[in-house]
């Protein structure tokens, strides 16, 4: 309490017992003022009135006020109010209709890049399943049709439920075949199996993302800087 820390008892604002008098004979003997519940505490009227005031204020504000525009809500940004009606304090974003703001650097699901002819660019070198800390990439290699690249993935699966989104697979890939830049949000699924991205799904994401020149760059046989 205040007295034990050497404070003056009078300017101790903390609630609780206050030391009034310390005995001259022994510092252990003290007179302490304890706040007993007064009449307004016993009937709860004062506290109830205060509480009702708070909830009533919120109610009126939220019923009469307009909702801040969803986009502003999503970015957590204040917007200047128009006219007399104030903004209310409801911060809910109505999810399927309104989406929350994704940061600039949001990457989204993996995608597999393709070549000019639409074939998958991956050469099944097994670097990404090796580096993946979550062991969520499964690749079964097969012989490629193009003799220059030797191998292609017959099966390429990423279990998005296990993926920890570390991006190491993208770093590891020597031929820029796997990227995490589709911007597609991982969807909720009803069965675990649905969360496994197959080769076709990953390629499809590449097609969805559009005609990014990098995703169809030719590769192989053009010297060390074919990735440019």
């Amino acid at each position: 309490m205040g007295a034990s820390h050497g404070h003056d008892a009078a300017d101790d604002e903390t609630p609780g017992p206050r030391v009034l008098v310390v005995s001259a004979v022994s510092p252990r003997v003290r007179t302490i003022a304890v706040e007993r519940p007064g009449p307004s505490d016993v009937t709860y009227l004062e506290a109830a009135r205060k509480g009702l005031g708070v909830t009533l204020r919120h109610f009126v504000k939220n019923v009469l006020g307009k909702r801040r525009p969803a986009a502003a809500l999503a970015r957590g940004e204040e917007v200047a109010k128009q006219g007399l009606v104030p903004w209310n304090e409801i911060e809910t974003i109505q999810y399927p209709e309104e989406k929350t703001h994704y940061p600039e650097r949001f990457r989204g699901l993996h995608r597999l890049m393709q070549r000019d002819d639409g074939a998958v660019r991956c050469v099944a070198c097994m670097l990404c399943p090796t580096v993946c800390p979550a062991h969520c990439i499964t690749i079964v290699p097969a012989e490629a049709d193009d003799q220059g690249v030797e191998k292609k993935p017959a099966v390429f699966e990423i279990d998005e439920l296990r993926c920890v989104v570390c991006g190491l697979c993208v770093e590891a890939c020597p031929c820029d075949a796997i990227r995490m830049d589709s911007g597609v949000h991982a969807k909720p699924v009803e069965h675990r199996g649905d969360a496994i991205m197959t080769r076709e799904k990953l390629l499809d994401l590449s097609k969805q993302v559009g005609k990014d020149p990098a995703s169809t760059a030719t590769q192989g046989g053009e010297g060390p800087d074919w990735r440019e």
Binding site: L56, F59, N62, N88, E89, I90, E91, T92
Partner: peptide
């Protein structure tokens, strides 16, 4: 609805 309005929900 009323409790929501009092608690800043929808």
């Amino acid at each position: 609805r009323q409790s929501a309005m009092m608690q800043d929900r929808l």
